[in-house]
Design a protein around this nucleic acid. Structure first.
Lengths: 190, 190
DNA sequence: AGCAAATGTTGTCATATGACAACATTTCAG
DNA sequence: CTGAAATGTTGTCATATGACAACATTTGCT
């Protein structure tokens, strides 16, 4: 069944018991998306959370020069959404897109917050998730403000190697704050 | 009384009522610090939250080249701490320092989480605070990855102008990811 | 399978910024 | 108040990276 990966994930990563994990997971709906499919558009208010059974998504925005800037990538067994828009309930500047054909579990905002009220352990998991998203963002600020291109590339190789195997260089460059061609040259130099 | 600013803050920014705001505020202890006083050290596990009655603090770390990188500044009527260390309970890479003689309300971690359990509205406020800290960090990633120095300076002028009036250029430069002298030259060019 | 579009590579060149240094100014301790 | 230390300014120079372009490769559509 399609809700099994999420159910397993909840059992392993929260204090929800077997039955609760099943109930929470069953509140999500299964969807399949193609490669490069836009899942949440720029300009609209984001109203869903996504759990990735299989595949990979990217959250990015377009700056005023027209360049893409990537906030982050998410792979199997993680949640992702246009979280800023979802929290503020303002139109999103973010675009959520698939980078591989992906299998997702979706839930709308109302149902999600319903779960959070009903299941204390799910609420705690959500709060922890936000805390760690913050820590990750903070770490990126620290890591990238001081580093030159070579250091950033090495950093990704060490900390998020999957980006270099599963994601297009163009998208990785937009995550590292450099252009396409600079990243290509840095890779050539090792 | 010294707990009044915090009490007022809680009344305005949470759904705690008068009495609860007072109880929460009274769980904090008043301290004064000099200018440039280290409040949380690098290498130790952070165990306190701080509310700023008056003054201004900065959170930063030192990268492997020996340069300072600033995570953020906080002024009157806001909370700050080495949040990454506090959440993970690992030794901090951050240093929390005062930039002006400051008056603070401190609470230790255990008492803080005690408050969070006891006062639902305080817990909700804390969760919201983390959410917005995340959004702020994310916005900085977006804002700074794409921008050149001039754009960053304009960005600060527009969004956090107090930095340029109350904070040393050196510290502001470390927040913007550029050197001292580059910032100085950019300011000279308008 | 075959063509068009997107992505990746590599080159040249211009430029923003870092490194360093000299000097000016401000801050701080005694 | 005074001198020492920290901070800020400005200059020169070296260098990493962006912009642009040509070409190669991969991907996606029919």
């Amino acid at each position: 069944m399609n809700s099994l990966p999420l159910q397993d994930f909840l059992k392993k990563n929260t204090l929800l018991n077997e039955e609760e994990s099943e109930e929470v997971a069953n509140a999500f709906k299964f969807i399949k998306v193609r490669r490069n499919q836009v899942i949440e558009r720029e300009g609209s208010i984001c109203g869903h959370f996504y759990f990735i059974n299989k595949g990979c998504l990217r959250l990015y925005e377009i700056d005023k020069k027209g360049n893409e800037i990537t906030a982050y990538f998410a792979f199997e067994n993680s949640f992702i959404t246009s979280i800023t828009s979802l929290i503020t309930q303002k139109p999103s500047r973010d675009i959520l897109i698939s980078h591989e054909p992906s299998e997702l579990m979706v839930i709308d905002k109302a149902s999600f917050f319903n779960l959070i009220e009903r299941y204390t352990q799910f609420r705690l998991f959500y709060n922890k998730t936000i805390e760690f998203a913050f820590i990750h963002a903070q770490m990126r600020i620290y890591s990238f403000l001081g580093m030159d291109g070579t250091d950033k590339l090495k950093w990704v190789l060490e900390h998020e190697p999957m980006l270099l195997t599963r994601i297009s260089s163009k998208a990785v460059a937009s995550y590292l704050g450099m252009t396409n061609s600079t990243l290509s040259k840095l890779k050539a130099k090792l």
